[in-house]
Amino acid sequence: MAIDLKDVNFHYPEEPNQRVLHIPSWTLSAGEQVFIHGPSGGGKSTLLSVLSGLFLPSEGQVNVLGQRLDQMTSRRRDRFRARHIGYMFQQFNLIPYLNAFDNIRLASQFSQQKKTPELHEEIQKLLSVLNISANDWYRPARHLSIGQQQRVAIARALINKPELLIADEPTSSLDPLNKEAFMGVLLSIVAENDITLVFVSHDLSLSNYFNRIESLSDINRPEGSA
């Protein structure tokens, strides 16, 4: 089981009376790719932050890749996230003043895995697979197009060979053509490496890339009994 949630409650510390998440039970098996859709403000991003261990649930069990995130110290959660989880945002996935190469290298620094001498080659390989031409590797990220940035973001998210990839509306700033290219390359890499994928979007047209499709409102019932 890649993800196993039980009786997870979450509210933001500033608003203790407004429960954002209430998930009685939800599971995702390893290697599965799920598409979660829901309205804006429904709690999608909040759920992903809980799954990645950025937020601790107010109550409940969060089991990710066989580890109880809710029982870890924040330091272990940070390390766990660095080693096992790749994460992508809608935008601002790269440090704008670092080049693509260094952005990916930076991500590999926090995993504290043995520095493989092949890191350099690995980054190059990933970038080529993602169709980033070599003369864009050493340009500051802010000079890349949005589509290029999002593809570099895939490389950045995958450099530590995570078992779980979390994507928070990574396509919403892309035009249809780029979107298609992005989805194609993302899903082929994920399938090739047996990566579990949680993909969140309100864009239902993307659902045909997935075989498991869920509506957040089915998983999450914040107004239900506490």
Binding site: S52, S74, D78, A82, Y87, A107, F110
Partner: peptide, 13 residues
């Protein structure tokens, strides 16, 4: 945003 990004790639606070 930068800080948020660093956190997401595993930087401790």
């Amino acid at each position: 945003r930068e800080i948020q990004l660093l956190r997401v790639i595993g930087a401790p606070a």
